[in-house]
Amino acid sequence: MDGYFGIALALIASTLRVSTPLLFASLGGLVSERSGVVNIALEGMMLVGAFGAAVVALSSGSPWLGAAAGAAAGLVFAVFYALIVIQLRADQIVAGTAMNMLAAGATPFLSKILYDSTGSTPGLPIDARFQFAPVVLAWAFVLLVWLWIAYTPSGMWLRFAGEKPEALEAAGVRVNRVRWTSVMLSGALAGIGGASLSIFLASSFSRNMTAGRGFMALAALIFGKWKPFPTAVACLLFGFADALQIRLQGVILWGTEPVPVQFIQILPYLATILVLAGLVGRSRAPRALGLPFRKP
């Protein structure tokens, strides 16, 4: 296990684990945004999912039921979002921000009601947590979402809802119905992403445990040009930068003093900026992204 091979293996395992919540969330973002609905509420959807998953995994002892509950919680939360931005045509950025605040406030509140503890839910025993399954599941979902969008009629509706909603409506498909479905699906995916945080990478829900991952997922989505596989690769890259950063802290690269921790810790973000600015080329958003659809 020792030597470079062991280090490389540990690094790969770490990358896969760290990128799992990002993968789910960015797929969620992809489904919503390709249908024309900006989704900066991903962070909140993840948080709600993480909470729901922790509660159900704790009471049932099954991580699978927990993950399902995480998806359900994210979905229910997304229904509110869809109602506000699709039905009532609110500004999607502002509404998304409000949803994130709502999630950050509602989860400790519910936790207080259930467990009389605002900080975190009680710890999950080891057999109520996932060991490796979410990593595989995440990649299965990448494949599924890609197949769906590229090869099925409903996948095509999704793309048209985001590119040329008028054309889709003219063809007899209700644009807003497509968007409703995608936003709900988006919530479910982000919810599983949150679940993979609370019942896979950690052992309980703790307040604000998403720690900005919803926004990282959005960045990965833009970076991946709103396409499933490039987005997944972007998530991997973020995960890799994070895993590498963990192992570079305190390493002496030159001289006698290690590189300051703060410098090492900005590397993932620095890498993101450099890659976004230089290597990706133009990343074009769906044409109707952020525009509420009104029947002509």
């Binding site: 770490s14 684990r17 760290v18 919540p21 945080l197 990478l201 950690a202 052992s203 309980s204 703790s206 307040r207 604000n208 445990m209 720690a211 900005g212 994070d242 895993a243 963990i246 703060q262 810790q265 900005i266």
Partner: peptide, 14 residues
């Protein structure tokens, strides 16, 4: 490097 560090158990575990 931000206040998020105090509630990020997943990162602490890694």
């Amino acid at each position: 490097i931000t206040g998020d560090a105090w509630h990020n158990p997943a990162k602490a575990k890694e």
